[in-house]
Write a protein that binds this DNA or RNA. Structure first.
Lengths: 192, 192
DNA sequence: CTGGAACCGGAGGGGTACCTCCGCTACAGT
DNA sequence: ACTGTAGCGGAGGTACCCCTCCGGTTCCAG
């Protein structure tokens, strides 16, 4: 509530360069990093990321002086997309809108074990991202609560953590993940 | 169901040595490893573990030829304790016995991020641990289901993963974790 | 007490990752 | 086209980690 919906992109330190070749490298690095972080977690090798991007290690360090700069840039994009999705769901039924968004959130988290690791730590940028997500998704829960569809003795923070936790775990297959998530959401739905 | 309850301890390859100094080192290594794995996850530095134990790196490798030997030895104990707890809960009410065990399981998982990482991978020993836990905890769920306290469209694997996921996530405080876990378990309780 | 088996520590070789630095490249404004 | 400069790549120094190997030490059975 204290945060505007989408400030995250502006906060990130690293800026896309103006020159054509530089911009191309910047994008390639971001893509490679997204892939590497998804695969190896938040401490993926930077040299490997540069290799994947087909770029010298020096170029990586020029664009993203610290590992954190790189990670934050990747993360901020994803969060923005999630925030935008919340807005687009505003016209659905309260409960359906909430679960639809949570499912999207879930789908996002499945691959991003790095994000979950980062969620644990304290960091300015991650605080901002959390704020943005809360500002975007919180109203969906509140709407469902006002409509009597969701229990009122929990807040959005509880809900996000529940879904994030379940989602980040290894399941036998996607069907099991969906089944378990649905069961947990039944607990959210029923007031008692 | 296919596994006997507590074979895990026997499976582990590394054996405690007979000589007094050797046994002391073995214990120190196990303690140090438990600490290091909890702190840095499953790929903690072996040299660091030897240092913590006040022991040469050679001694570590003699007792635990591979990182996996060490890791498995540390966690087989924990799983056994969990299995034993399930048996001791047999005389409580079905639903209460189930939640009591799950809470204990949860308390165990909070610190052990390494276990969660390992749970994702494929491994003989972790398969054995899973089997043991299923054999120990599964009946608790089945009993609750027969008593009409738990929904029947889920199995113990679903339940364990739900609790493990929620539990392994970072919460603001323990109270929030308990609150969220209780909400999710409400979903398990209500048939609809 | 004593001999030898069991055990110890850590040096060292090979590997990988981090990050800096600087000579070269290619873009963009005129 | 020309030129100044922003941007490029990667060699190389440092640090850490893995794992092996062996000369020295400690235990304990007889």
């Amino acid at each position: 509530m204290t945060a505007t919906p989408f400030p995250v992109g502006e906060i990130v330190a690293a800026r896309r360069p103006h020159r054509k070749d530089a911009a191309r490298n910047y994008d390639a690095l971001l893509d490679a990093a997204r892939e590497a972080f998804a695969e190896h977690g938040a401490d993926a090798s930077l040299e490997d990321i540069a290799r994947r991007a087909g770029v010298g290690i020096g170029t990586l360090y020029r664009n993203f002086p610290t590992r954190r700069d790189l990670f934050e840039s990747v993360y901020a994009d994803d969060v923005n997309a999630l925030c935008r999705a919340a807005v687009e769901l505003a016209d659905r039924e309260p409960w359906e809108a909430l679960t639809a968004w949570l499912n999207r959130f879930s789908g996002y988290m499945v691959t991003k074990r790095a994000v979950r690791e980062a969620l644990d730590g304290e960091s300015d940028i991650f605080q901002s991202c959390r704020d943005s997500m809360f500002a975007a998704g919180g109203p969906l829960l509140e709407r469902a609560q006002r409509a009597g569809a969701a229990r009122t003795d929990m807040d959005f923070g509880d809900l996000v953590r529940m879904v994030a936790g379940i989602t980040a775990t290894a399941f036998e297959d996607d069907a099991q993940r969906d089944r378990v998530l649905a069961i947990a959401l039944d607990g959210v739905r029923t007031p008692r």
